[in-house]
Simulated scan of single mutants.
Amino acid sequence: MQRTRLDLDRIRAARKVIDPVFLDSPLYRCEALEPLLGCAVNIKLETANPVRSFKGRGTEVVASQLAGSDSRAVVCASAGNLGQALAWSSRDRGLDVTVVASRFATATKLDRIRALGAKLELVDGDHELARERAAAIAQYDGIRLLEDSLDLETCEGAATIGLELVPRIDPSSRPAVLIALGGGALATGVGYVLKTLAPAVEVICVQPLGAPALTHSWHQRRVVTTDATNTIADGVAGRIPIPEVLDDLLLVADDAVLVQEASIITGLRMLLDHAGLVVEPSAALGIAAVLEDRDRFAGRQVFTIVCGSNVDLDKYRGWVSL
């Protein structure tokens, strides 16, 4: 494999500074889903932790570095999960955290950011406007800007998930790992580890049809932006891919696919009914991908990373009751 920005030694070192509460998350074969999907479905559950998403792995690395530095203030833009994770990782380390988010973000996520002690600033726009505002704050105040997926700590923290997947992969079973694609930290991090240590795995990124920028960029091998997004999967609803992330993704992903909203909703219902899991739409993207292309995955060992469960319950009830 050609060289990416990531490094296996740094990823292994990250495990030593990440709070064990985020490590070795449940990984199990969900036999109840197999008759419905036609493949051996393995769930990597990244919601059984204090911030209910995989983001804590990366923010633990960032916060541990900041705690030992002269600068103890940090700002980030977040759709909700990164902000919660950064606030949680910083709270006991005495760091000053500002999170910029869209005022249209999931209220549950925003409330949790406040409850964890971070300063929350809301913007009248989408996540890309929040990114611009966070960068302006960092420059004006002279503090650390944490950019999800661009900053290697977020990618290499997420990559520790890959270290936990590798021992369970059966190369003879035509294995595939389905990874939700948003900013790209999860996909590039996990994908790098898999391609380095388990090259037989097919790494497939999954994005909503209503937020396709990074998928289009992967297929066209250049940054493709969109003017708007339209998806219930708010955690992956970016419009402007980061060039460095795309460069990495082109080296570690075997494919990038788009799925329809109806499939995401069906995936949410299936995870509830057959796995007992209440998750956010981004976490159902892997199941949605299998639903839309059953023949591709028939009889294979399939892993899906259930990446978050911070969901607006009123909206969730509406989705799963349809």
Rank of each mutant, 00 (worst) to 15 (best):
G94F: 10
I143R: 07
A138M: 11
V61F: 00
A13Y: 02
T231M: 05
V203A: 12
L37F: 08
G286T: 11
C39R: 10
G94Y: 09
I113V: 15
R133Y: 09
V190E: 03
L250W: 00
D24G: 13
F22Q: 05
Q84K: 03
L82I: 14
L251V: 12
R239Y: 00
A213L: 04
L27K: 14
E34P: 06
P167Q: 13
A115L: 15
P212G: 09
K55S: 01
T154M: 14
E202Q: 14
A284Q: 02
T266H: 12
Y140D: 15
L209H: 08
V257Q: 05
D126I: 07
P199E: 04
R15A: 03
V100Y: 00
I204R: 00
G38Y: 05
V236Q: 05
S173M: 15
A135L: 08
V223P: 02
Y316V: 12
L146G: 03
P199V: 08
I305Q: 06
R12Y: 00
S263K: 10
S321W: 04
R114K: 15
A213G: 05
R222F: 01
R91H: 14
A101N: 11
K55W: 00
L95H: 05
L120S: 12
D254Q: 10
I240H: 13
N42Q: 08
C39K: 13
L258H: 02
P20A: 14
A63I: 11
I179V: 13
I11E: 02
F297E: 08
V224L: 11
T106W: 00
E153M: 10
L95V: 11
V302K: 06
N49I: 10
G210L: 11
